[in-house]
Structure formats: C-alpha cells, structure tokens
C-alpha cells in the first residue's frame, strides 16, 4: 500500500528525554554527565532541523545574552550571536577594548554590572585559565565558557562531538586523533573529556614540547593516550583533528621552525592515508592552511571543517535554550 500519500515515514513514539539541564553554568565538559552531553547533542539535532526551515524564532524573547570577550575572536562570538538571535534573544557584545575593562575594572565588577543591567546569560572568552569560573561564582547569571586561556572550550568540544556523531554515528570505540599544540589547546582539553565520555579513544599527538606530560595518568582507563608520533596517532583513526599552530611557538623556541612542524606534524594526504578509509578531517579554526593542515586535506571530500562551523550555531542554540530555561526555573 505504498501510495503517494505515505511518502514520508510515519512518526514513531516521541523520544522520552530523561535528563534535563539544571546547571547554572557551562564551564567545561569534564563535569558533564553522559546524559547531559547527549541531551545537548540531541537538542542540537532538533535545532538544526528547525533552523533548516525558518528564520528567527521568538523562543528566548526577553532573554538577554551578553558576550564578554577579553580576547579576539570572530567565529566563536559570531556563532553565539547568531544562535542567540535565531532564538529571539537580545544580544549585547562587549570586548575588552572599548569598555570599562580597559579602565581597569575587575572581572567580578564587570560581571556584577552586567547582571545588574539584566544579563541572563554571559558568554565569556578570557585569556586567563579559570576566569569564567571566577565570574560564575560571582553572579547569578548563567555563565558559558567560550574559551579560557589554555584550559577549556566546552562549546567547541560539543560541536566537534556533534559533527563526529553526525558523520560516524555511535562514537563508541571510535578513534579520534588530535594533532598539534595540545599543551596550549583548550579545544583539545575539552574534547578529551567530551569524547571519552561518549566512548571514543582519543589520541593526543604533537611535538614533545607541546604535548602534556602528565595527562598520561588517564591512559589507565585506556581511553586517551599521548604520543609524539603522528604515524601512531593516525593509524586506524576514524577522525583527525588538526589544531592551530601559533607562530609564537616558534619564537619561544618550542619548535625549531614552522618548516620543521610542517615536516613532522602537518596533517597531509600521505599521513591521512594511515587513517581508516573515509576518516573525517576536522579543525576548530581559524586554520593556517599549509602549516598544521595541507590545503588539499582541509578542503578534501572528508573535511567537515565548514560543517563544524554550521553545527556550532545549532549546538549553541541548544545550549542557550536549555540554560535560559534552567535560569528561568531557578
């Protein structure tokens, strides 16, 4: 009885989502339960679905989202702003320059001022590790860590996990290689906790001076390991994530030269051949094409780099939506 009228699948029983988001803040992925991570990923899927159909919603009408950036960033801030606006929230953007921050106002005073003005959610990017924790302890507004020093970048990790899940399905037992300046990478750190919670094996790889020496403590669980061999890291990988290599690392002598880095650690097609066929290629951006990642790989058919950016908006919509709800319920 296949007729034209039944061309789309009949909906099954609605999924019963058992977890709710109750936390005031989102500071890192290490304190999230698997259920919370799955909630955000599932909800991001629904957001992506809604987003494909329509323009702006009025869901978060009256909710004020403030982005407070003490470091330069274009994509993360734009992504948060887009996500908030698509949900109908009011968005105020503050940068360290052009505000009281430059006049020496403390982080705590700034945060309290923004709360008094009526901020519901604060999206904070800061060069000092731990700064959003300090902010979160000193305001009743929800704080979202948009990157703190070399510590954490939870929304990036969640959008990476979302992208991985969209491309690979269930992540249990998948191998994800993260290559580059792991030591200074907040993206790598937050990905370790999110991806291992989802059942991935995470292989951290980079020059000996740029990989952590003590994170090996985690290998006893057999879930992540550290290596200075890119061949070992990429062997059989389901996904390869290249990290941005900062020019300063050369200047401070942590690597001999960018040339040496390219020679030894660039993710290129020859090395990618060691990974599983069809392994996806990721990068948190902004890319230095030709340094940490070869141009043809960055734009190859298995590259998800642009997808990551698009998914970032859906993931941040899910986060903003649930954190705004949690705040209203408090």
């Amino acid at each position: 009885m296949a007729s034209a009228a039944t061309r789309f699948p009949q909906p099954g029983p609605a999924p019963i989502v058992e977890t709710s988001w109750t936390a005031k803040d989102l500071l890192d992925t290490d304190t999230l339960s698997l259920a919370e991570i799955n909630l955000i990923l599932d909800q991001a899927g629904a957001m992506k679905d809604v987003r494909q159909r329509q323009g702006k919603l009025a869901t978060l009408r009256g909710v004020a989202v403030v982005t407070l950036f003490y470091e330069q960033s274009t994509r993360t801030r734009a992504s948060f702003e887009m996500a908030a606006k698509l949900l109908g929230a009011d968005v105020v953007n503050l940068t360290a320059s052009g505000s009281s921050v430059e006049k020496g106002e403390t982080l705590i005073d700034t945060v309290r001022t923004l709360e008094a003005i009526g901020a519901d959610l604060l999206v904070i990017r800061h060069g000092s590790s731990g700064a959003p924790y300090l902010a979160a302890r000193n305001t009743s507004a929800g704080v979202i860590n948009a990157g703190d020093g070399a510590h954490a970048h939870p929304t990036q990790a969640l959008l990476d996990a979302f992208t991985l899940r969209e491309n690979l399905g269930d992540l249990k037992g998948r191998r994800v290689a993260i290559v580059g300046d792991v030591l200074h990478s907040r993206v790598a750190r937050s990905n370790i906790w999110a991806l291992t919670a989802l059942g991935c094996s995470v292989i951290l790889c980079g020059p000996a001076t740029l990989i952590p020496r003590t994170l090996e403590d985690g290998t006893e669980e057999g879930r992540y390991m550290v290596t200075d061999s890119i061949e070992e890291a990429l062997d059989g990988a389901d996904a390869v994530m290249a990290l941005r290599m900062q020019r300063e690392r050369q200047e401070s002598g942590l690597i001999p030269s960018l040339r040496a880095y390219v020679r030894d650690y660039q993710v290129n097609s020859a090395r990618l051949a060691l990974a599983r066929p069809g392994a996806i290629v990721m990068h948190p951006g902004p890319m230095n094409e030709g340094i940490e990642i070869a141009q043809d790989v960055a734009h190859g058919i298995t590259s998800t780099i642009e997808e990551q950016v698009a998914n970032g908006v859906a993931v941040r919509m899910a986060i903003l939506y649930h954190m705004a709800l949690a705040r209203q319920r408090r």
Binding site: M47, D49, L57
Partner: peptide, 19 residues
C-alpha cells in the same frame, strides 16, 4: 520553540524534530 509561556511551565520542553 514557539511557546510564549516558558517561564511558567514546569514541564521540560525538550525540542524534538517535527516531521
């Protein structure tokens, strides 16, 4: 996502795909 009474609801309105 289309409701206007989120503040007063005590159920948890998870967003689900519409088909």
């Amino acid at each position: 996502l289309f409701r206007d009474d989120l503040r007063s609801r005590d159920t948890l309105p998870h967003v689900r795909p519409s088909e």
